[in-house]
Each structure stands twice: as structure tokens, then as C-alpha cells.
Design a binder for these strands. Structure first.
Lengths: 365, 365
DNA sequence: ATGAAAGCGCTAACAA
DNA sequence: TTGTTAGCGCTTTCAT
């Protein structure tokens, strides 16, 4: 049986508008009336028709999460469930609904539909490439948008990111302080900003410790475990062989550990490994993985909150205000794979966890 | 710049209704007119507003894919990207859009919102539990629905499933024919229908070959690789030790192979392994995995097509017609892990692939 | 083959 | 605080 506002109004003995006010938490309603209306609403399990709502109110209370990557890459990566969880939690809290949107036929039709048909109020874009045409086109349409990560090409987007550079640099400096000097890195795909940032952090870390970088010590993977194994195999063939590796994701680090083991090397005695993420198998790896923790769920939560904030505050189409850039801190989680236990520098006792000095940073574009 | 039907109509010099007819492929439009209108539509990149469409036409052309499982379980399983790909393809073809819907706060609010608010025209439900309250409630609402898999508790839902029983039975019979006689199984979670069906197939296979089943030879996993390893470790402790294992997913089978290797056993010399799915690492496992292939993308494709069919044919709310049950065949893909190479029974030469006799089966509830 | 007109169920001024 | 009144942008009879 189909319920409408009108019907509820009739049953509660008030006007349609009053019911509308009640279900929209408008303060201008008499408490008694409000109570009575709620009663009827509950009793009939009434839910307002979204289509009508969206049409009249010009908003749908749906936001989309779009990950412009191949489906199998998305599903293989333990990063995304956490991101989704965080975003969904924020949406829940604010009465929004999160839909995962596919962009399969790369960008084209789907994209237009997504935007022009106004099926959702805004978009969370995760894991975009450094040069992402999809992103560019969304911006051209002035569609409300928050980017998870950052995009050097577009300073005017609101972004929520973790401090990749600092996190990576911390990891490398830690390795150097543990006494390693031939420090290599396994990066993510070099068309992704997060991968580039972590590589940049790696380079800065080396520099800070007065170590010279070498091209042969940088091998790229694609975030997958298998690519970590392969990159590690390549590194082990380099002369002189690295004695430590900073790996840009835990997934790849686990793969790298396998390669080291297969080559008959002990970790961390022969070669140290530090990962990035602190998810999945980091803690239970053999040996337990020292890694840079990033708060992925918080990232999702903040991204969604920020988008919603923006949607609700924006005077209509005025989306192009000063973009916010939120950066979350990373922290180094020290376990066994970095040789901490092996060479316990006296002053490291209190450093089991080294928080980034960053904290949450707000800045204007 | 906001386009509306009205605006397009003005630009094309026709009425709003004509434009509506054109974009909805109504045959009652003069070809010349149609052409002219399309021109204007394209030129302005016009996409009708979904909300308005949904409100006036009572449909949104969006269907949802719901997987009532924990997020990390979904993302860890290589099954889902394929399923999504198939469903999305079908949607694309028919002008629908597939959205992945989360059901996080188990069922309650989200569920009601999803259904009552009519945000989508229909739902694809995948990987539901044998006793799924979520499913029950959807049915109570008479919401258009197709189940990927099957639900013994609800004979009246349209379902699309693979022939799990037959596939599993094939695998077991094959092992028996290879000369193995102490055949164990690693099942999926025993609250899921697909897992139960495969176990049933295992039992029937044993029976067909005149082998007695034993409870100790059945260990449950949760589809994950790790759970496969653990289940295998348990099996290897049973006396007498099994000489073959049918594992209900490739993921778990890979885990099982690891356990066997760790125990110093050779596969298939000491113990044979057959998996289920034929995705992910099956072909590249060490040794390559004999497995039961299920056409997951087709499953998704058919599920979506069937749902759309149902939506478009259903005279309004009359969803409760006779439910269709579509069953897709599975096939045995023979590789090395089952000992085929070891004991080449003469008459197996032509059997590299044993298709299920099933074929596509349509039946009425 | 085309147009006019009546809603779909809601929100949001504006009145009262 | 509440009700009245226009729409939101589209689909869909019903005329023409």
C-alpha cells in the first residue's frame, strides 16, 4: 500500500507541509504536532519518495564513490573496503546514502549520465591517476566533488589525503638510523600521485640522511603482492645489493618478503623491509612488518563529511569556493622487519611509534 | 547550463512530448523529426533528469547489486569483480545503470530506505545466506528481485545459479576415477547455500563411486585462502590421511596447496587437490589446479538481464508471477593437481574438459 | 504524427 | 506555528 505525504497528513490531521517539515527536522513545528505526525509516520512505515524529493528539492541525498580503476584492481586491494567503510559511516551519520558507482566503459557515457542526470548530489573520487581525464571532465561540469588523494594538476579541488611524503621519509630515515645504508624502494604505479609522493618521500629521506639516491634502487610495482615479489627479485639482482627496502604498500611488501625468503635471505639480518598502510597481513607477516600506518577509514570518513558539508553549505551552484586541502598524518609502526630488535639504538626505546608531526592540517588553495 | 526537455523542444521546434518520445524510442515519431530532435539532444549533451523521470514514469532505470556480506569478505573474493562485470555489461546493453549498494548497518534502515523510497527499480542480491532475514524482508515488500544463487527457503524468487551440486560431484568422481579413494573436502561457510550445495555434490559423488563418507573428512573454511590452509592442516591430521581433497573454491585450494607443501607432501603424488571456480590463481598455481569452472560473468549477465526483463514486462506491481530458475552448467577443467598426468586412464584422453550435461536449464517454480 | 494538459510526490516560498 | 500555492522535469493519456 502506497503512502504519500498527503495521506500521512490526512491521518495526522495536519497539512502536507507540516508533515514535510517534520520529516525534514524543521524546527518550526509545535512539539505536540511533531510527535503526533511522527507517530503516524512510524505506524505506516512511511518513507518519502526519493524521486519526488530530489525533483522538488534539487537534491537526492545520495553521494557516489567512484574509483576510476579496473574492477579487479579495486577488488584485490585491501585499501578500498576500509575507505568505503569510512565513507559510508559518515554518510550514515548525516542521512546520506553512499553508492559505489562503476565507471566501466572508461568515463564516457557513464560519466555523462552520472553528472547530467543529477542522480547524485556529489562524488567522492578515489585513486585517480595523476593525469585523469575523467577528473578533468567532472570539473568542467562543476560537479560537487571531493578527491581522496590529491591532484597536482587541479589545485582547485577539495582534497583529503594522507601525508605520503612525510610517511615515506620517516620510514627511510628510520632504516638509515638502524644502520642500513643501501636503501632501495619499491614504488606504486608511477602514474598515480600517491605512488609519486611516496617516492618523493623516499628521496627526501635519503637526502636528509646524506645518502645518495640511485635509479637502480627504484623499482615500480602495481600495489599487488605479485608485483612486489617481482620488483624485489629485480632489486636483488642489483650490485651492490640493497640492504633495506622501503615498499610503498604492505601488499607489495609481503610479496617482497617472499622474494627475499626465496632468495635465501634473512629479514632483517640480510635485508630490512618497511611497508606502507598497516593493513592486511602487515602484523602477521613473517617477520612482522614495520610499516607506515595511514588512517584509511578516517580518510574515507573525512572525505565524505567534507563533501556533505560542502553540499549543504554551498549556496546552490556556487561550488567553486576556495578548495580545502586536508592532510592526515601517518605514523611509523615499528615491528621486526626493520631490524629494530637487531640493533636497538639506545634512544629508540621511546620510539616504538613515531607519530608524524603533521596532525590534521587545513590549508587554503 | 541546465537543459530540460522543454528547452530541447524549443530548440528543435517541437513539443515537449515529441522530445520525450524520441528519447524513449517511441515508434510514433516521424523520422525527420526524430533526426532533428536527436541532433539537438546530442548537441547540448542533454540527459533527462533521473528524478523527474522516476517520478513521472515510476522508474529510474537504476538497478542495485546488493551483497549482504561483510565488506572485507566481499573485497577479498575474486568472485565479485567478475559478477559485477557481467551484471554491469547487461545493464549497459539495456540502458540501465548498475549501482553497488551497501547494506552496512545490517539491513535495517538502509534496507527500508532502499525499498520504500524506490530509488532503484530492482535489486540483484548476491551471496545471500541460507537463512537471510534481509532477503525475507525484501520479499515481504514485493520488491523486484533476482537472486544470484538460490534459496531453498524461498521457492518463489527468480534465481540464477550455477550447478554447484553437479560440478562438485564431477570433481569427486574424477578423483575417484584417478584412483584416489580417501577423498576429503574443504567446504565454504555452512550457512551459505552454495557451500552446502557443493558439499552435497561431494557426498553424491562419493556415493556414485561407492565410497563411504566420513565426517572427519569434511572441514569448513570461509572461502579465504588462509582458511583453506587451516582446513587442510586439520585434514592432514586425520587418520587415515586423505589422499585427495575437493576444495569448494580456488582461493581455499591455493591455501590448501600451501599447507600440503608445508607438510612436505607432493601434489598430486601424495595428495590430489581439485578446486572450484577456475579464477584467480588456479591456472598458475603450483601445481596448476584442476578445478570446476563456473561462468561467473555469465551468471551476472543473466541475472541482470532477467531482472530487467522482469521489470519491463511486469504489468506494474505484478511482480509475483511464477518465478524462473535458471541454472548454468559447470565444467571440469583438468590440470595437474588431480593426478591426471600421473595415472592416465586410457579413456580420459578425450575428457580434458568434461562439460556438465546440464546446459542452460529453464524451469518453472 | 504531434501537441496540450494533467499529474507523479515532494519542497519551499509566501500568507495567514 | 501552520496552511496555501507554485512549481521541480518528466511521462502519458487524450485530442487533434
Amino acid at each position: 500500500m502506497k503512502m504519500t505525504l498527503e495521506e500521512i497528513a490526512r491521518l495526522a490531521g495536519v497539512s502536507r507541509s507540516t508533515v514535510s517539515r517534520v520529516i525534514n527536522d524543521d524546527p518550526n513545528v509545535n512539539d505536540t504536532t511533531r510527535e503526533r505526525v511522527w507517530q503516524v509516520v512510524k505506524a505506516n512505515d512511511f518513507h518519502p519518495n526519493t524521486a519526488a524529493r530530489a525533483l522538488a528539492g534539487r537534491r537526492s541525498r545520495v553521494i557516489g564513490l567512484v574509483i576510476p580503476q579496473a574492477l579487479n584492481a579495486i577488488f584485490a586491494d585491501p585499501y578500498f573496503p576500509l575507505l568505503i567503510q569510512g565513507s559510508a559511516a559518515a554518510c550514515d551519520e548525516r542521512g546520506y546514502y553512499l553508492m559505489l558507482s562503476l565507471v566501466l566503459r572508461q568515463a564516457d557515457d557513464t560519466f555523462r549520465w552520472l553528472i547530467r542526470a543529477r542522480h547524485m548530489d556529489g562524488l567522492l573520487v578515489a585513486s585517480a591517476l595523476a593525469e585523469d581525464t575523467f577528473l578533468t571532465r567532472l570539473l568542467d561540469e562543476h560537479f560537487p566533488l571531493v578527491l581522496v588523494g590529491r591532484s597536482p594538476a587541479h589545485a582547485d579541488i577539495t582534497t583529503v589525503d594522507v601525508d605520503n611524503v612525510h610517511g615515506a621519509s620517516m620510514a627511510v630515515r628510520h632504516l638509515a638510523q638502524m644502520g642500513y645504508s643501501r636503501i632501495a624502494t619499491i614504488t606504486g604505479p608511477t602514474n598515480m600521485v600517491a605512488a609519486l609522493d611516496r617516492r618523493e618521500g623516499y628521496l627526501r629521506g635519503l637526502q636528509a640522511m646524506g645518502i645518495e639516491a640511485s635509479a637502480g634502487y627504484m623499482q615500480a610495482g602495481d600495489w599487488s603482492e605479485g608485483s612486489g615479489t617481482q620488483a624485489m627479485e629485480r632489486l636483488l639482482r642489483v650490485t651492490p645489493r640493497p640492504d633495506a627496502v622501503f615498499v610503498a604498500s604492505d601488499n607489495m611488501a609481503v610479496g617482497a618478503l617472499k622474494a627475499a625468503r626465496a632468495a635465501g635471505l634473512r629479514v632483517p639480518e640480510d635485508i630490512a623491509v618497511v611497508g606502507f598502510d598497516d593493513i592486511g597481513p602487515a602484523a602477521t607477516a613473517e617477520p612482522p612488518l614495520t610499516t607506515v600506518r595511514q588512517p584509511i577509514d578516517q580518510l574515507g570518513y573525512l572525505a565524505a563529511s567534507t563533501l556533505i558539508e560542502q553540499l549543504e553549505s554551498a549556496p546552490a551552484a556556487e561550488t567553486d569556493r576556495a578548495a580545502q586541502h586536508i592532510v592526515l598524518p601517518t605514523e611509523l609502526v615499528v615491528r621486526a622487519s626493520c631490524g629494530q630488535a637487531l640493533r636497538p639504538a639506545a634512544n629508540y626505546a621511546a620510539m616504538q611509534r613515531v607519530p608524524s608531526e603533521g596532525g590534521v592540517t587545513y590549508s587554503q588553495a
